[in-house]
């Protein structure tokens, strides 16, 4: 069952991201890890593809423990927004750390700096995991503005963007509205 959901998700993400610049994925909390697995599996090992993964839901350490086997040969840069503010002292070299998830402008700067250093002919992808976690630390209005600024920048640099939203955590509608395509994952099916 889980495998079927992951395969289904991979296919939906693949189709959505090929056609659209931005894709919002709404997921129930108990399917969040499956979604991450689907996303990491979907990423190509192709060097002409670069991903930046911004995490505010799990620490980078946690992600690497759970998914490193799936993503280790892929071209992914990580930005961890919560380890430092949670007082976690083990910081990994391969990850960029932000002092606090309230520093939204700094997150944008870090993302753009990563993509600025990448050649033009490389396909660029960005994952924000998750908007609902950012809303825990920020006012929802400022998170909306953050998404809007990020989407404008992403469009001008031709970056495909995937934003994740945990359905139980916030009023989901406003934050996903800005995406070109919204994928909703329910407990046992995708709509």
């Amino acid at each position: 069952m889980v495998d079927a959901v992951i395969e289904g998700l991979k296919e939906r993400i693949s189709v959505a991201i090929k056609v659209n610049q931005s894709v919002g994925i709404q997921v129930p909390e108990n399917r969040h890890q499956d979604l991450l697995q689907a996303l990491f599996s979907f990423m190509n090992t192709d060097k002409n593809e670069v991903w930046t993964f911004v995490t505010a839901s799990n620490t980078y350490k946690n992600i690497s423990e759970n998914f490193k086997k799936i993503y280790e040969d892929k071209n992914i840069k990580f930005i961890d927004c919560i380890s430092r503010s949670s007082g976690i002292s083990t910081l990994e070299k391969e990850c960029n750390y932000i002092e606090s998830p309230t520093m939204l402008e700094k997150i944008i700067l870090k993302i753009m700096n990563i993509f600025k250093d990448i050649e033009h002919d490389v396909e660029k992808f960005l994952v924000i995991d998750s908007l609902s976690s950012l809303v825990i630390y920020n006012d929802s209005e400022i998170v909306r503005e953050f998404v809007s600024v990020l989407m404008n920048k992403a469009r001008s640099y031709n970056i495909h963007i995937v934003t994740i939203l945990i359905e139980e955590e916030v009023d989901t509608h406003k934050l996903l509205q800005m995406n070109d395509k919204i994928v909703v994952l329910r407990d046992s099916f995708i709509s």
Binding site: L104, E105, I108, L109, D139, E141, I142, E145, F146, V149
Partner: peptide
């Protein structure tokens, strides 16, 4: 980077 406007609102 331009400061997000909702900061002032905040």
């Amino acid at each position: 980077m331009p400061l997000l406007k909702s900061s002032d609102f905040d």
